[in-house]
Simulated scan of single mutants.
Amino acid sequence: MLQEKLAQYKVVLASKSPRRQQIFKELGIPFEIQLKEVKEVYPSHLVAAEITDYLAELKATAFKDSLHDNRLVITSDTIVWLDDKALGKPVDEEHAKEMLQKISGKKHQVISSISLTHQDFQKTFHDITEVYFKDLTSEEINYYVQKYQPYDKAGSYGIQEWIGYIGIEKIEGSYFNVMGLPVHKLYKELMQL
């Protein structure tokens, strides 16, 4: 299975997301975590999945000098795409509330990209999930932001948290993609290495 497929690689997960780390553990992938600071800035002409593909590859460039010893570096990026604009992570409490007010009562897309980078190749792919939110009250938004402090989450929410339970009416596509890792596509691509 996957463990045998990856036995020849030293897998490096370049993510501080506890959700991504948990998914890797549950997939049974032996991995180590390495983090490198990267300024997550992209050219203004990029849209939707072009942004996350670009940022996932940009994060991989920080590892270009450490791709020896058969390392396979896995980087990723997630955005919320709403009204032709990208919503990344909020900078503070007010920004988080503002984002949640924007997605309240609307459909948006969650786009996650993954880049698999090795000294001999780089494969980048993405997934898109449609998420439908009910109208959120200001009390619900305030409660969620104060209790859960979603500052590490694109669009200021986690589908697996309280706001996801009470606010999301339906999704079309992968649940795990909304968590930030399209696991079904990652598995498929790793099995094809």
Rank of each mutant, 00 (worst) to 15 (best):
Gln3Gly: 08
Gln3Pro: 04
Lys5Cys: 14
Leu6Gln: 02
Gln8Trp: 03
Gln8Gly: 12
Val11Phe: 04
Ile23Lys: 06
Glu32Pro: 03
Glu32Cys: 11
Leu35Ile: 14
Val41Gly: 07
Pro43Gly: 11
Pro43Ile: 05
Ser44Phe: 04
His45Leu: 13
Val47Glu: 11
Ala48Phe: 12
Glu50Val: 05
Tyr54Pro: 01
Leu55Ile: 04
Glu57Val: 12
Ala60Ile: 05
Thr61Trp: 02
Ala62Phe: 03
Lys64Phe: 08
Leu67Tyr: 03
Asp69Trp: 00
Val73Asp: 00
Ser76Asn: 06
Asp77Pro: 10
Asp77Gln: 08
Val80Glu: 03
Trp81Ala: 01
Leu82Val: 11
Asp84His: 15
Lys85Cys: 07
Lys85His: 12
Ala86Asn: 03
Leu87Asn: 04
Gly88Arg: 11
Pro90Thr: 10
Val91Ile: 12
Asp92Ser: 03
Glu94Ser: 11
His95Val: 13
Glu98Pro: 00
His108Gly: 09
Val110Asn: 03
Val110Asp: 00
Ile111Gly: 02
Ile114His: 03
Ile114Lys: 01
Ser115Thr: 12
Asp120Ile: 03
Gln122Lys: 15
Thr124Met: 10
His126Ala: 03
Phe133Leu: 13
Lys134Trp: 00
Thr137Phe: 09
Thr137Met: 02
Ser138His: 12
Glu139Cys: 00
Glu139Phe: 07
Ile141Lys: 06
Ile141Ala: 01
Tyr144Ile: 05
Val145Met: 06
Gln146Glu: 15
Tyr148Gly: 01
Gln149Ala: 05
Asp152Met: 12
Lys153Tyr: 05
Ala154Leu: 04
Ala154Lys: 07
Ala154Ser: 09
Gly155Cys: 10
Ile159Phe: 07
Tyr165Gln: 13
Gly167Gln: 06
Gly167Cys: 06
Val178Lys: 07
Met179Tyr: 06
Pro182Thr: 04
Lys188Trp: 05
Leu193Arg: 09
